[in-house]
Structure formats: C-alpha cells, structure tokens
Amino acid sequence: MRGRVLLIVGASVVIVVVALFVSDALNPMLSGDREEEIYVVMKTTGPHMEFWQIVRAGIQEASQEFGVSPEVVGPEFEKDIDLQIEIFEEVIDQEPDGILLVASDFTRLVPLTEEATRRGITVVTLDSALDSDVPQSFVATDNVAAGVTAGEEIARLVPADRKIAIISHIRGVATAISRETGVMQALSEHNPELVLGPFYSQNDTQLGVQIVENILSEHPDLAGIVALNENSTVGAGRAIQALGLKDQISLVGFDNSREEIEMLENGVVRALVVQRPFNMGYVGIETLVRSMRGTDVDPFINTGSVLVRKEDMFTEENQKLLFPIIRGN
C-alpha cells in the first residue's frame, strides 16, 4: 500500500516535471532564457563611414525582428586588418552561437573562420568575400550584376560608335574584378576597340581626375565613362566638371557620396549604381539567425543594387537610398 502511494506521488512528480520541460520546449524563443549569442565582426566601427552606419541600422532592425542582441565589434579603421584578426580570434574564444563577419581581407581570416566552424559556430560573411566555402552563407551586393547594370546604362547613353572608358579602383580586388566583369558583359555588343581600360584609380580621387585627363588627351572623342567605385566616380566627375565636358561625356558611377549626389543633380553624373546597405545588414542577421536555427540558407545572397538617374533621385524609394541618414539642420 505504501509503495503504491509512493508510486502515485512519484508519477505525479514526473508528470509535473515533464510538463514543465514540454512547455519549456514549446517556447524556447519566448521564454527568453535561451537567447542565442551572436557577434558581428565589422571591418570598421568608426562613425566616419555612412555605409557601415546604415549596415548597422539594418543589423539593429533585424536583431529586433529576430529576437537577438548581437555584440558589434571591430577595429575603428578598415585598414587595421591585424586588429580585426585579433578581435575575431577573441570572439571565437567566446564560442558564441553565430558570427556575422565582414572580412577585411580575402585570405587572412580564412584559418580563423575554419576554426570557428570546427567549434560549431555558425559563420556568415557579409559584404566582403572570403576565400573559403566554410561560411554558411555570403550576403553581399552581387557586384557582377551591379556592373551589368552600370554597363547597360552607359550602353544606353553612349551611341555604339563612341568610346567608353572603364575606371576601376584596384587591380585584383574582388569588387573591382566583379564589377569589371559585369560591365564587360553588358558591353559585349559594343565594339571592343571602343571600350577603353579598365584604368585603375588606386582608390584615389586625384588619380581618378588625372586618369580622365590622360584618357581625354589621347581620346578627345571620349563619350562615356563607367567609374566602378566612389573615389573613381568623384575623380572622373571632377575632371568632367573642370573641363566643362558634362554634355560630351556621360558618366555612370557607383555609390552615393554627397559629392556624387550633387554631380548627379547637376548632370555631371548621369546615373549612380547604389547598393542597399540597410538590406545587407538586415539580411545578414536574418541569414545568420535562420542558419543557426537550422534552416538551409543559400550560399550566396544578393542584397541588390539600384540604378538612380537624376530624374528619379527624389522618388520615395531612391531618396531613402541616396540620403539614408535623416539629418536636420
């Protein structure tokens, strides 16, 4: 008889405990006591790059949506690759559930990324590619597609018998290669002899100005320039402006610095290919969280780019891309 009482009491205790566990298992997200630990390792955490601030706004928004609170770390300056490696190593030692990595170097962060994956950490790379297929996903602008967009626009603006110059930033850099490929792809119909370059501005505005001047001295009949990043675009724009050649030369550029926007508005730049940094940050976190929670994610996710011309600068959609930060007086 005593045994039976004990049995019933025991069974009841088991029922209660099981019920607690079941209810726990039913709402692991809601109960909040199992929140995933996430780190975002940035290229730069400084306030001087608007692009990264917008990426972080996207990261913030996605974190709220997916119920995570990532720790954002990184060197202040993008060039500080050694510091980023050091920080990345420290982050891996924390053994978080997931890392969103904006790699500042194509190859040097590969061993650590592989180490992180070995330790069961989900890694997703953002914006900048890594020479490894270990990350679950790579979330970035499809630069080939962006190059195609720019190439198609210049092809639309420049007659088939006129010369087009391509000004890229640094030879062999991933974005440069991809954008060049895209532009060339879009200009495949164009007479190859009329496609000049690519020339490399070394990411230097002044050098960009010089390159345009040099090209013009050799090819005064130049009718179009495709500049593949911000500094190349600004350099080319300044040259055109200085020479008063904005009606002769159509310039299609990349990115959306204040100077570029002014050039777009006053007709020096005909169109800009603009990335979507907010979406990049948002989709980066979304992809990381999905992957951590067991959903299959695509190895590459294109967050897209938009071509903005003067006439649609201030459309509802584009003004938010061109002027992402709400500024007052």
Partner: peptide
C-alpha cells in the same frame, strides 16, 4: 504563454496535492 505556464504549473501542483491527499 507565460501566464499559461504559471496556470498549468499551479494546476498541476494542485492536482498533485489532490492526488496525494486523496490517496
């Protein structure tokens, strides 16, 4: 869900006590 859990737990504890006492 939180409320539900508290109610469920307290109900279960009540039922447990009830079973013990009735036994």
């Amino acid at each position: 869900t939180l409320t539900q859990r508290y109610y469920t737990i307290s109900s279960l504890i009540l039922v447990l006590f009830a079973i013990v006492i009735s036994v």
